[in-house]
């Protein structure tokens, strides 16, 4: 507040007196209390309890619980299968983040330039996003089926040999990435499209008058003005990709020969199938540390670039 106004009776102006501020901010707290309550109960409290569990040998089966110090952490960090699961998560992230950012940008550019079928493109590119994960994985598992699936019958009708898609250690992860990109790219696409449509037309008009080609306009105007959106999308996608679990669990259950078992599945396997809540909590914290580091690095990188 830079201006000061003469005091007026609040009843006349409808404006709250400055001196009443503290009261109103308490009222605000009541409004967020329902959210805060659930947040504390279902996010903060379990996180704290989980950290506590990671220092115990707590089992899902119950029984006496004893403090085991750093045993779970040592076990997790020296477990080669945890590291290979972590690598699978990183591999999925490395493959999916660039794909889903660049693809979203390309689709948004296409839609932005389409004069006639814009509504149709918007609908087609975004529609898969509304499917539930179970539906998406059913569709793709059928299309990927090596003997009965769509892809291989197309390949074979073209005289090519079929690919084993989800059933081969070297192609399974890529197949999952392709299916995920089809399913999830719509959200990034929508963010890009919205950002593109908020770029004022006069910038482009000025560039046209200066004789800029279409490609130059994209490179020199669209992309620089989208950099904030790109940063946002990349961060969201990075976090989303690191958390990958459902579609892989439904499509391959982590196979073949664990080529697609992600860290979250390994945590699930240890905690819920193997009943070892203590170790699973320790692994979950190792993984959380990784996500936090990645997010901070990403955030630093993009905020510095903007300056």
């Amino acid at each position: 507040m830079t201006r000061t106004r003469p005091p007026m009776p609040a009843s006349r102006t409808g404006i709250t007196d400055v001196r009443n501020r503290p009261k109103t901010s308490w009222a605000g707290l009541w409004f967020i209390a329902p959210f805060l309550g659930f947040y504390l109960l279902f996010v903060v409290w379990p996180s704290v309890v989980g950290l506590g569990y990671s220092f115990t040998d707590r089992s899902l089966a119950g029984g006496p619980v004893s403090f085991v110090g750093l045993d779970n952490w040592v076990e997790s960090l020296s477990d080669p299968y945890m590291w290979s699961a972590l690598w699978n998560t990183l591999l999925f992230t490395l493959l999916s983040v660039p794909t889903m950012v660049i693809l979203a940008l390309a689709l948004a550019l296409l839609t932005d330039h389409a004069r006639r079928l814009g509504w149709f493109l918007r609908f087609s590119f975004f529609a898969p996003f509304v499917l539930s994960v179970a539906v998406m994985t059913l569709i793709w598992a059928w299309m990927y089926n090596p003997t009965l699936g769509l892809f291989n019958s197309v390949l074979e009708s073209l005289g090519l040999s079929g690919i084993e898609w989800l059933h081969n250690e070297s192609t399974a992860m890529i197949s999952v990435v392709i299916a995920t990109a089809w399913w999830q790219v719509g959200f990034n696409y929508l963010l890009y499209l919205a950002a593109m449509q908020s770029i004022p037309d006069d910038v482009y008009e000025a560039a046209s008058l200066d004789g800029a080609s279409a490609w130059q306009k994209i490179r020199r105007i669209t992309l620089p003005l989208l950099s904030r959106t790109t940063g946002l999308i990349t961060i969201l996608q990075l976090i989303g990709s690191l958390r990958v679990f459902e579609q892989i669990y439904l499509m391959t259950e982590g196979g073949p020969n664990f080529a697609t078992r992600t860290i979250i599945q390994y945590i699930y396997d240890s905690g819920f199938v193997g009943l070892r809540i203590g170790t699973a909590s320790a692994m979950a914290y190792v993984f959380m540390a990784l996500i936090i580091v990645a997010s901070i690095a990403q955030f630093r990188f993009f905020s510095r670039k903007e300056q």
Partner: peptide, 24 residues
């Protein structure tokens, strides 16, 4: 404690055993 149908023993060993069939 980890053996049995859909237990961890099967989960962990089906992976390597399946490579006998895939030939990898």
């Amino acid at each position: 404690w980890f053996s049995g149908s859909a237990g961890r023993l099967q989960d962990e060993l089906n992976g390597p055993l399946s490579t006998l069939h895939t030939g990898t």
